[in-house]
Amino acid sequence: MPAPTFDIVAIGNAIVDVLAQADEDFLASVGLTKGAMQLLDEEASTHLYARMGPAREISGGSAANTLAGMAALGARCAFIGQIADDQLGEVFAHDIRANGVAFATPMRPGQPSTARCLILVTPDAQRTMNTFLGASQFLPEQALDRETIASAAILYLEGYLWDPDEPRAAMRAAIDIARRAGRKVAFTLSDSFCISRHRADFRRLIDSGQIDILFANEGELLTLVEGEDFDAAVAEIAAHIPTLVVTRGPHGAIAMVDGVRHAVPAEPITRIVDTTGAGDLFAAGFLAGQIQGRSVADCLHMGAIAAAEIISHYGARPEAKLDELIKARLG
């Protein structure tokens, strides 16, 4: 097997996040449940945007956020995701390339427009996400860069993108390409609402050995097994996955690697500002540690450090130098 050209290639939603502060009265006035994630059509997205307060635009998308963090830690990264030929598409393309991530997916002409996520952050740092998936739903299999997928050590897939038919077919094809090339496949479950709709698909991928590294938070894992016992859920899924990583918010995170359990506490943080992207950056730190050949404990610590940095400010892209934070903490 030839040496990889990239450490990781990810397929995910190409989204621009629009963040604004909001209180619970505002959420109630627009019929939103705090902390939830919902999908909007373009008309509803435009209406909600008009009612939001002052906002800032930051390129996002779960897998793209993970790559931004990994690139900051020195990993060689490539991203595959669909944008439209419009202003937000230009913003997304510029931002991800400026982060050192290779991105060559052609823009899609016409409608719908580039995806956006309207994120309302309440004073307790909880984020209520309202997503218009736009052009990202129309990533066709022919847009895959097969050579890049085959030459990357890890293929990383975003569960959020499993809903639409075209990208789901593209991701299945990408798994086949990676498998034939002898590469690892990593998958993030993304959100309980995704799991509820696609549990059977996700379980088939897991149970058939198509996934090497699985990322979930505690709630997602319990949704996946339709149970309430965390330890039992870990044991059930870890039996089919070489590496299972589960984040537990303030209770830290665990990893089951080849049947051995490892755990770390959450990193201390003075003030939580915005939890957007915490899971994405945890995955970034963990995978970067794997690529660097670090111990499982170090990989978990790297994930926790990256997640702590991201929740200390608005937006899901790192602002501090992650490599320096990790060096100071772990050496």
Rank of each mutant, 00 (worst) to 15 (best):
L214V: 08
F215R: 02
A216Q: 00
G219P: 01
E220K: 05
L222Q: 05
L224G: 04
V225H: 06
V225A: 11
D229E: 15
F230R: 13
D231W: 08
D231A: 14
A232F: 04
A233W: 02
V234K: 03
V234W: 03
A235L: 10
A235E: 14
E236Y: 05
E236P: 06
I237N: 01
I237F: 05
I237Q: 00
A239K: 12
A239T: 04
H240R: 09
H240T: 12
T243S: 13
L244K: 03
L244A: 07
V245S: 00
V245A: 01
V245T: 09
V246Q: 01
V246I: 13
T247N: 04
T247W: 11
T247A: 13
T247V: 07
P250D: 15
P250I: 09
H251T: 10
A253H: 00
A253R: 02
I254D: 00
A255L: 11
M256K: 03
M256T: 04
D258S: 12
G259F: 05
H262M: 10
A266C: 11
A266D: 10
E267R: 13
E267V: 13
I272V: 15
V273Q: 08
V273N: 10
V273A: 11
D274C: 00
D274H: 05
T275F: 05
T275L: 03
T275P: 01
T276W: 02
T276I: 11
G277C: 10
G277R: 01
A278E: 01
G279V: 01
G279P: 03
D280P: 03
L281Y: 04
A283F: 04
